[in-house]
Amino acid sequence: MCLAIPARVVALQEDQQALVDLSGVRKSISIALVPQAQVDDYVIVHVGHAIGLLDPEEAQRTLALFAELPAGSPA
């Protein structure tokens, strides 16, 4: 099973990279597939790559669903 999660872009970096916030964890990812991504946009992240833009409301709904999962449960 593959999982892609919403993340908010907090900074653009060199070489088509961006720093994103994944529920408090910051990670550098590739935005080569979504070069139009800007700071404060939500992107869908899969294996270290942004694979699409996401509406902020949809991102919040998805993150809220993830937050409801019990710790240690399979996603």
Rank of each mutant, 00 (worst) to 15 (best):
A50G: 10
V10G: 01
L65E: 13
A71S: 10
P56K: 14
D41T: 01
L19V: 08
V25Q: 04
A11I: 10
K27T: 01
D41N: 09
M1I: 00
S73V: 13
D41L: 02
V9S: 02
Q13F: 00
D15P: 05
H46L: 03
Q60S: 07
Q36E: 13
A4Q: 04
V34P: 03
E57D: 14
D41C: 00
I51F: 01
L65F: 15
I5L: 15
A4H: 07
A11T: 03
V9Q: 07
A75E: 04
A75L: 14
A64P: 15
L54V: 10
A75V: 01
S73P: 01
A37Q: 04
M1A: 14
A32V: 15
A75R: 13
L22W: 00
I51P: 12
L53H: 04
S28D: 05
S23A: 12
L3N: 12
A75S: 08
A32C: 03
G52E: 05
S30I: 04
A32L: 06
Q13G: 03
Y42T: 12
G72T: 02
V20I: 15
A71P: 10
I31H: 05
V25E: 00
A4D: 10
E58D: 12
G72P: 12
E57M: 06
I51Y: 13
I51L: 05
L3Y: 08
A71F: 02
E58N: 02
F66Q: 14
S23H: 06
R26F: 05
T62I: 11
V20M: 07
A64E: 15
L12A: 00
D41S: 07
V43S: 05
E68W: 08
I29R: 09
A50M: 10
S73Q: 15
V47C: 13
A18G: 00
V25T: 07
L19M: 11
E68K: 13
A64V: 10
Q60W: 02
V25A: 04
D40M: 04
A71L: 11
D15Q: 15
V34T: 09
R26Y: 12
P6I: 06
E57Y: 07
F66C: 09
L22Q: 15
A50F: 05
S28R: 09
R26D: 01
G48C: 12
D21H: 11
L19S: 00
L19Y: 05
V39Y: 08
G24W: 01
I29Q: 14
L63K: 13
V45K: 10
Q17S: 10
L54Q: 06
D40K: 11
P74R: 15
I29T: 03
V20H: 03
S30M: 04
D40F: 03
P56N: 09
V39P: 03
E58A: 14
P35G: 02
E14T: 04
V39E: 10
V47I: 07
V20N: 08
Q60N: 14
E58I: 12
I44Q: 06
V39W: 02
Q16K: 02
L69M: 14
F66G: 03
I29C: 10
